[in-house]
Design a protein around this nucleic acid. Structure first.
Length: 265
DNA sequence: ATGACTCATTACATGAGA
C-alpha cells in the first residue's frame, strides 16, 4: 500500500496534476492540504471516476483538508478531539479546516495543515504551538488506548526541525519555522511515541519538500523541508520506503509543495 | 531549462502563504 501527502495549494488549480499523480504513482491513499475550496464546490466526480472515495473538509477559500482513498474509507473525523480554534481580532473563535482523519484499510490517516504562525509575536504563533501540542496530547492518548494502532499523522507541519531543513537558516532567524518553541512543539509528537519516518528513510541534508514561488527558489534549490509523516510504532515498522516527488515542483502550474510518499510492506 | 510568486475572492486590490 502507498500513502502520500501533498499540500496542493488549491485543488481546483491542481486538479489535473492531482489526478495524473494518483495514476502515475499508484497512490492508494492521498492526504491533501490547502485544498482552498468549500465542501459544496469540491470536485468529487473525477475522483469517483478514478476509483477514489474522498472525505473533505473546507468551508471557505482558506485551508481545507482531504483524504482520497481507493482502499476503503471509514470513521471520518473533521478535527482532532482537542484541536484549538482561532479567533481573528474582533471575531468569534473558529474551528478551522486543518485536520481530517479517516480509516483506510486499517490505517488511520490524518491529513494535517499546521498553522503557519505568521510571526513570533503574532497570535497565530500561539495557535500554531497549541495546535501541535494538543495534537501530541491526543495522539499519545490514542496510542495509550491501543499500542498496536496504525496511525499516520501526515501533512504540512510548517516547522523545519533542523537547520539543514532550510536553504539558509539566517534568512529565517526571528521569523517562523525554526524557533526553539516551534521545534519543541514538533518534537512533542516524538515524545508521544510517534516516529517521523521520512527522516528515518531519507536522512540526507538539504532535502526539501517546499520551494517558494519567488526569487527562483526552485531552480536554485532554495527550499524548506516542512512536510512530514509521524507514524505510530506499529505502522512505522511497515514503512519500507519514503519518496519525495521533487519532479512535481517542475513546470507551469506546480504547487509550491511536492508529494511525500510512504510505501508500506 | 528545474526559471524570475500564486491563489481565491460577490475580485480589478487584498489577504494569506512560506
Amino acid at each position: 500500500m502507498r500513502i502520500a501527502t501533498w499540500n496542493v495549494n488549491s485543488l481546483r488549480a491542481r486538479l489535473d496534476r492531482t489526478l495524473a499523480y494518483l495514476e502515475s504513482h499508484q497512490i492508494d491513499v492521498l492526504a491533501l492540504q490547502e485544498t482552498k475550496v468549500k465542501d459544496a464546490d469540491f470536485p468529487a466526480e473525477p475522483f469517483t471516476a478514478a476509483g477514489y472515495k474522498v472525505a473533505h473538509f473546507g468551508y471557505n477559500q482558506w485551508n481545507g483538508v482531504a483524504v482520497a482513498t481507493r482502499v476503503g474509507l471509514a470513521d471520518v473525523q473533521t478535527s482532532f478531539p482537542d484541536q484549538p480554534t482561532f479567533a481573528k481580532p474582533g471575531s468569534e473563535p473558529v474551528l478551522e479546516a486543518r485536520a481530517l482523519g479517516a480509516n483506510c484499510a486499517g490505517v488511520t490517516v490524518w491529513s494535517l495543515y499546521v498553522p503557519h504562525g505568521r510571526g513570533q509575536a503574532d497570535p497565530h504563533m500561539a495557535y500554531k504551538l497549541d495546535f501541535l501540542r494538543t495534537l501530541a496530547t491526543d495522539a499519545a492518548a490514542w496510542l495509550a488506548a491501543n499500542p498496536a494502532a496504525q496511525i499516520a499523522l501526515v501533512g504540512d507541519f510548517n516547522v523545519a526541525p533542523l537547520d539543514t531543513d532550510v536553504w539558509d537558516v539566517s534568512v529565517f532567524a526571528g521569523l517562523t519555522h525554526i524557533s526553539p518553541a516551534e521545534r519543541e512543539a514538533f518534537a512533542a509528537l516524538a515524545k508521544a511515541g510517534f516516529r517521523e519516518v521520512t527522516r528515518e528513510h531519507l536522512p540526507a541534508e538539504h532535502l526539501y519538500t517546499q520551494w517558494d514561488y519567488q526569487a527562483l527558489r526552485f531552480p536554485r534549490n532554495e527550499g524548506m523541508r516542512i512536510d512530514f509523516a509521524y507514524c505510530s510504532p506499529a505502522l512505522a515498522d511497515r514503512v519500507s520506503a519514503v519518496d519525495i516527488i521533487r519532479d512535481e515542483r517542475k513546470g507551469k502550474g506546480a504547487s509550491d509543495h511536492v508529494p511525500v510518499e510512504l510505501t508500506l510492506a
